[in-house]
Design a protein around this nucleic acid. Structure first.
Length: 327
DNA sequence: CATCAGGGCCCTG
DNA sequence: CAGGGCCCTGAT
């Protein structure tokens, strides 16, 4: 086990998201599997971040309310950071965390919707987002494929422990992601020894695409959704399920909902039509329903229902859901 | 003990 | 476009 890199220089800045902003429902997603690069408790999220080659520790603290949001962001580093770096880092965090998202039109249109309305009221200010870079999200997507949650957790842990950088700051020990360059030197055989199976090949090839600059996250941001989709589908091991998550979470397309995987189909069927999971509603019918009900906001709308369900599972207990989520 | 599906995707026919 | 195979694991 590598000794953690101690980050003892830090600075704190204030972020002001667009209102309304729900801190906990945005900074914590109970449907995400736990990983060693992040930690959450109500009002605080720690997150490691690799930015312009520097491993950093971030701490987000809630200093406001839904109506008057304020976030205190503390940034830990090994050495003093220059203002340009901090400025670019801040812009990146605002983008990734969707802090400028304007929800007013969405709320105006659906506040009286019979089923969505109450959920919007409950989670007012929640937004979808991603906490990582595109490369990191792709790795997470690969680790999710065709595996139970428990196995995804152990694969991600093994990868972070072997190729990530352990960091220590603010009393937390967390792992930071690796640079694509680091993973590029690892052999597929070595990866397979971590029991990630055939995913080793996908990780190697996706990594190579970044090292060879076949794909660039910042270029993609300025392209159309279909261009983004084609670029992502072109990556080995990345298919429609992973691309759907990436187009909505990473590139913030609020209407991206073209594909529903079998496990989601069962949950949606129960949630929206109260049908037995063994006889789920056909995917085509679910998609048509979302489109008809929520139109250009279908992904955002479904996100609210989905998160509401997983918060319930975290706080209370949802019998039928536990059977559909193999841990 | 064997078999199977799991928070998919690739490849083949 | 359907269906087999893929790594590994725990459930049955």
């Amino acid at each position: 086990m590598k000794r953690p890199k101690v980050l003892n220089v830090y600075l704190t800045i204030e972020l002001v998201p667009t209102a309304p902003f729900n801190f906990d429902a945005t900074l914590h997603k109970p449907d995400h599997f736990p990983a060693a690069d992040t930690r959450w408790k109500p009002g605080t999220r720690w997150q490691t971040m690799l930015w312009q080659g520097k491993p950093l520790g971030l701490r987000f603290e809630n200093r406001g309310t839904v109506a008057r949001p304020r976030i205190a962001l503390s940034i830990w580093s090994a050495r003093q950071l220059d203002p340009d770096f901090v400025s670019q880092l801040t812009d990146e965090i605002i983008y990734r965390y969707n802090l400028q998202l304007d929800l007013t039109e969405f709320y105006r249109r659906f506040k009286s919707h019979p089923t969505l309305g109450p959920v919007l009221y409950k989670w007012r200010g929640m937004r979808p987002l991603n906490y990582s870079s595109l490369y990191e999200y792709l790795i997470i997507a690969i680790v999710l494929q065709n595996a139970t949650v428990r196995r995804s957790v152990s694969m991600m842990q093994a990868l972070l422990e072997n190729y990530g950088t352990p960091l220590s700051c603010d009393g937390q020990k967390l792992h930071c992601f690796w640079e694509p360059n680091v993973m590029d030197t690892v052999t597929e055989q070595e990866l397979r020894a971590l029991k990630i199976g055939y995913r080793a090949k996908s990780i190697k090839r996706v990594t190579a695409a970044f090292v060879d600059k076949d794909i660039d996250e910042f270029e993609l941001r300025s392209q159309s959704r279909e261009e983004q989709r084609q670029a992502l589908l072109g990556l080995y091991g990345i298919g429609p399920a992973s691309v759907g998550y990436i187009l909505s979470d990473v590139f913030h397309h609020m209407n991206e909902l073209e594909y529903i995987s079998p496990w989601e189909q069962k949950i949606y069927s129960k949630l929206f039509f109260d049908t037995d999971p063994d006889t789920p509603v056909p995917v085509e019918q679910l998609l048509a329903y979302f489109n008809e009900q929520f139109g250009e906001y279908r992904m955002l709308a479904v996100h609210y229902f989905w998160e509401d369900l997983f918060w319930k599972r975290k706080n209370e207990h949802v019998e039928w859901l536990d059977r559909l989520i193999r841990l």
